[in-house]
Amino acid sequence: MEHYKNRSEQIPIFETIEIDTDRNTATMESFTNTSIDTRQLPRFEAVDFEPLQADYKKVIFFNTAVFALILIGILGAFLLINPDMVFGTVLLIGVLAIVIVIIMTLVIALVSFRKKGFAFRQHDVLFKSGVIATTITVIPYNRVQHVALHEGPVSRKLDLATIEIFTAGGSGSDIRIAGLRREQADRIKQLIMVKLIEEIPSIASENNEVPPVKLTDDEL
């Protein structure tokens, strides 16, 4: 228990991490089985969440613009088919509806962007999101199945990337962090990779079975 700390991690450069291979033997020796004082455990709810990159707002604007263009296209096509309505109330209602929908979409997207945050602790990764309900997802590193890094065409221009962290718990439990600096995403991936190597021996020694760990690197 005293050895269990779960402070937030500085996302490090790969080379600076030392893999503590003695960790298992050390914990074995100091193994005690006293009851846990739950109030002394590190508190996940007290973690400071790191916000996403402000540049990601540009991606949001871009996506909304594309969405707006599609809506305008639909309205235009409708008016082309019914040319007599061009000056009617239909045009007015259509334009008004599009404006409202676009503003709503943009506001929700921006608020949800502001609400998102992530934190990497020594033993787990946390992700916070949600406008109406605040949701916090926690994945311990020793349950991570694989990590993927994505870069969309717009994101690439802005030097942004998305990290996805998968577990065996199904799609509902996966964490997807969009709007990271490319370099930051790379380091996160490396951090998790190192954590995986660090955490797995403890499992393997017990079970002779190393869970499959894949690291994919899409769109690179």
Binding site: T134, T135, I136, T137, I139, R143, T167, G169, S173, D174
Partner: peptide, 8 residues
């Protein structure tokens, strides 16, 4: 447990 999600 693979992952935990709290929601409020």
């Amino acid at each position: 447990i693979q992952a935990i999600r709290t929601s409020q």
